[in-house]
């Protein structure tokens, strides 16, 4: 049994034009020690999927389906039970290290907090552990830095703090939402290496959300491509990147910066823009942008089909 099993997850939110579905019937699994990467353009539903797993979406949002952690459905838990899980068994790393930390509390306070909330540790023990964690995520002079405030640290260091917070209670699952996007390229590299090292040292399952296929190719075991709130293609990373099936995946790969092109010249994956949630097509979500579209694409929503072993795609033309 996989650690996290998401089945038919649908997130609905009310607008003046009726209910829309930023995440629409999405199913996937993540096992211990595995890195699953969720990829797509912004607005494709990947961040919403992450927040749905954490159950941190706004109150007026409806979540349907099942999100099972070790077999127990998170959606059936009370808010109090969910609070006991968050930061303890599932934790989250955010995109913006500059704003993800509370500016008026020391980083020590913020790292110790999950320990004090979820374990029976005393303050002194929690402090010791926080210093260990700082050292583990590669902060120099951890015993001194523990009293620093976020504004005294660089962006990369702050992201390390956020990771230390996420690691504090030795969680089973970490949800990382674009953890390197806001950082410089060299720092990105370091943070990715850190995440990789942590996953291999422990048996943490990592759900890595990114729009950057280069990141995916380096770290992910499996990749899941999303578009318009739906899964378009899933499979082992090497297989998907080498033999993409879905036209959208092909587009994303085609847009990767390549050695033979001048740097900075990034191609648009596919012409056109992501449709707005309120006018999502009834058939394939990509229909209006797809180079290979036929009439049948617009008629019904394509089902996910196994094309190669462990490699699925939702395209009728595959």
């Amino acid at each position: 049994m996989a650690l996290l099993e998401v089945e038919h997850l649908t997130v609905s939110l009310p607008t003046s034009d009726g209910w829309v579905h930023p995440v629409d019937d999405v199913s996937f699994t993540v096992s211990r020690g595995e890195i699953l990467s969720i990829v797509g353009e912004s607005g494709c539903g990947k961040s919403t999927t992450a927040l749905a797993v954490m159950r941190l979406l706004a109150e007026n949002v409806r979540i349907a389906g099942q999100i099972r952690l070790d077999g127990a459905d998170l959606l059936q838990l009370s808010e109090a039970e969910m609070c006991a899980l968050r930061g303890n068994r599932i934790s989250m790393i955010f995109q913006e290290p500059m704003t993800a930390l509370n500016p008026v509390k020391t980083i020590g306070f913020q790292i110790m907090e999950p320990l004090l909330v979820h374990t029976s540790m005393s303050r002194t023990e929690a402090r010791e552990k926080a210093i260990d964690l700082l050292a583990r995520v590669g902060i120099d002079q951890p015993a001194r830095r523990i009293n620093a405030y976020p504004h005294q640290l660089s962006g990369g260091q702050r992201q390390r703090i956020v990771i230390a917070m996420a690691l504090a209670c030795e969680p089973d699952l970490i949800v990382a939402d674009e953890p390197t996007t806001a950082l410089d390229t060299t720092v990105q590299r370091q943070i990715l290496d850190l995440l990789l090292r942590l996953v291999s040292e422990t048996s943490i399952a990592l759900m890595l959300i990114t729009h950057n296929l280069a990141v995916v190719s380096e770290v992910a075991d499996r990749v899941m491509v999303m578009y318009g709130g739906r899964i378009t293609e899933t499979g082992p990373t090497s297989d998907v990147l080498a033999h993409p099936i879905h036209p959208y995946t092909k587009g994303l790969i085609g847009a990767l910066p390549r050695a033979d092109l001048p740097p900075g010249e990034r191609l648009v994956p596919i012409a056109g823009v992501v449709p707005r949630l309120v006018d999502m097509p009834s058939g394939c979500a990509l229909a209006d942008r797809c180079p290979a579209v036929i009439d049948a694409c617009r008629r019904a929503r394509p089902a996910e089909r196994m094309i190669r072993p462990a490699h699925q795609a939702a395209c009728i033309r595959a």
Partner: peptide, 17 residues
Amino acid sequence: HEDFVRTARAKGLTRRE
């Protein structure tokens, strides 16, 4: 509305905390 509020919630703090 700030991000760190969401971070704190992700740590397992209740709304009140």
